[in-house]
Design a protein around this nucleic acid. Structure first.
Length: 152
DNA sequence: GCCAACGTTGGC
DNA sequence: GCCAACGTTGGC
């Protein structure tokens, strides 16, 4: 069982959007970074839990918890010329990008703000808070996971 | 909108 | 393989 953090811009896809999907389940598409792709493709397991992080918005922070319900498979949005995440270098025969399916476990009543995360000593070394970090899919240690839950 | 940090691209 | 230029991310 692994712990993760997934970033999304709420303008594009928010935790409220996920809550409204059938089965509160949706594919996590659009990741176009190799390190993040490798996590999605190789390391995420069905049953793993992830924080849903809202980025690039007025109130960045962790909005809730999702469960991985389908392990890595080709991100088909890369095959669609009309999709914003289209990548002609990725084909059904040789897919370059991968996604997983996530199901909403619960949305927090209050988003745990980035500021709260930054001022929590046990989270000092968390990847998310590292200088210049841009990774949109990242692992968390069990200690980080529970420290964040304590902030709720 | 600004800008620092980072990843990718492409010429050499 | 180097590295400058460029595009993107993401907080503020």
């Amino acid at each position: 069982m692994n712990y993760w953090l997934l970033k999304s811009e709420p303008d594009a896809f928010s935790i409220t959007d996920l809550a409204q999907r059938p089965g509160r389940t949706e594919h996590w598409d659009g990741v176009r970074n190799y390190q993040a792709r490798n996590y999605l493709r190789d390391s995420m397991r069905r049953g793993d839990l992830a924080f849903f992080y809202h980025s690039s918005c007025a109130a960045p922070g962790i909005a809730g918890i999702v469960e991985i319900v389908r392990e890595g498979y080709p991100d088909f949005t890369a095959f669609d010329p009309f999709d914003t995440h289209y990548d002609p270098a990725s084909t059904p025969d040789k897919p370059r990008w991968y996604m997983v399916d996530v199901r909403l476990r619960r949305a927090f009543k209050h988003v745990i703000s980035l500021q709260e995360l930054k001022s929590c000593p046990p989270l000092e070394d968390m990847k998310l808070l590292a200088r210049g970090n841009r990774l949109s899919v990242m692992p968390l240690t069990p200690a980080e996971w529970s420290a964040i839950l304590d902030l709720e």
